[in-house]
Simulated assay, not measured.
Amino acid sequence: MPSFLGSLRQFVLAPKLSAVTFAEREFPGADSPATERLEAIPQAVVCGFEWGIAARDLWEVRRRLELVEPEQRGFAYEGAAMAFAVRDAMAGGSGRRTRELLLGPGAPHVFLTYIGIGFAMARLPRPLWRNIIPDLTDSPYYPTMTWLAVDGYGFDLAYFHTSRYVDEQRVPAPYPWEGSPDYFPRAVDQGIGRALWFINGADWRATAAAVNRFDEARRPDLWSGVGLAATFAGGCTADGLAALREAAGGLWPQLGLGVVFAIKARTFAGHVPAHSALAAEVLAGLSVSDAVTIADRTEADSTGHDAARDTEPLYERWRSRIRAHFTATTSSPVDRNGRQPRGPDQRGIRHA
């Protein structure tokens, strides 16, 4: 049972479940057959946030989270991580709740808990970001996968500020995450790509059209986010997934990259729903075990020293190696970032 202070925090900070519905957000995909399924995901995040923001201790939060069905449990952990990151920030950086969650019961959901921290970032001033990721030296994928927090930040911007970050295509100012400010907008775009799948109700036509309205230089990262969301969250038929793959065209390796990351996250958490296995097969031509093998095989950098890539985050190096698997199996000419060959970049980004 939450304390009085916990109940007050929940009342002030926790959003209503209706606030994340497609109708209230006025998303174009509100009438999609997949709407109810997709709405359940942010609602699970809200529930996890409510439990995390009000709870007296980690035991209470864990007990509640474990009652959530396996397919949705990771999303509830997202919300709890978001809440703990906010509470730690409110404690002046002295809080340890996030670390205890990520090293404890949240460990199998580490990919999603990082995303949850990104949701907290969207609600906190940037000076508080400096210590928002706790030291997780003993945790797998630390610090490589902390970029998923930036992905989560991008998703939140697109989901809750759609006009600004989707319609107007604004880009937040760079931030030196892991010492790589130039990569920050790319990781944000990966989250925006995930959001486009939700905003458009898992409709492949609407999602592809939404991606293609962005500047060409941004589309590769958007497509990887679409692939991750379509695989992890689902909502589309086999025929629709096949059409989505076709729509990606020469950027199909980016779509496949998102598939591999989604399957890796699902298997690491111990539950792969049927829709994820279907997406792996249709979007990437992979079984679940094959997708995991690709993720594991490419995790360690076996490419040797490459001075041209020394400034890339380890996260992007891993992504590049996964993309290379798909680039080698497609006849479409693409560069190492999955882009069609083109002239100098003329996009001219406006920073929000």
Rank of each mutant, 00 (worst) to 15 (best):
L102C: 13
Y77C: 05
G106F: 11
G104W: 12
F84H: 01
I53F: 09
R64K: 12
F75I: 06
G92F: 04
G93N: 12
R63E: 14
W59R: 15
L102K: 05
E60C: 14
R62H: 14
Y114S: 01
T113K: 02
G74P: 05
A83L: 12
R123V: 00
L101Q: 09
P105G: 15
F111Q: 00
Q43G: 08
F84P: 00
Y77P: 03
Q72L: 15
Q43E: 02
F49M: 10
A54K: 07
I53H: 01
Y114E: 04
G106T: 10
L102T: 12
A91N: 13
L112A: 09
R73C: 04
V68F: 04
A91W: 10
R62T: 11
E66F: 15
A54Y: 07
A54E: 05
E50H: 06
R126M: 06
F119E: 00
A55R: 05
C47T: 12
V110C: 08
V61K: 03
F119N: 02
A80K: 02
E69T: 13
R123H: 03
L101E: 09
F84D: 00
G106E: 08
L124C: 02
P125E: 01
T113R: 03
A54Q: 07
A55V: 10
R96H: 05
A44D: 12
A80D: 04
L101M: 07
C47A: 15
R96S: 09
G79A: 14
G79I: 08
G95Q: 05
D57E: 14
T113I: 08
E78S: 13
Q72P: 03
P105T: 15
R99H: 13
E50G: 11
G92K: 01
T98D: 03
L124W: 03
S94V: 13
E71Y: 02
R96Q: 08
G118Q: 09
P70A: 11
R73N: 04
P105A: 12
V86Y: 01
Y114W: 04
M121W: 00
D57I: 10
R97P: 09
F84A: 01
R87F: 13
V61R: 05
E71S: 12
A120R: 00
Q43T: 09
L102S: 06
R73G: 02
V86H: 00
V45R: 04
E66N: 14
A81K: 05
D88Q: 11
R56S: 06
A81V: 11
M121E: 01
L67A: 06
Q72Y: 08
A120Y: 00
G92R: 00
R97H: 08
Q72S: 11
L67Y: 03
R87A: 08
V61W: 02
M82K: 14
S94E: 07
P108S: 07
D57Q: 14
G52L: 08
A122K: 03
Q72I: 04
V45P: 00
E60M: 06
Y77R: 02
P108A: 05
V68Q: 06
P127N: 07
Y77V: 09
A76I: 07
G74M: 04
P105N: 13
C47Y: 13
A83N: 03
Y77F: 15
G48Y: 01
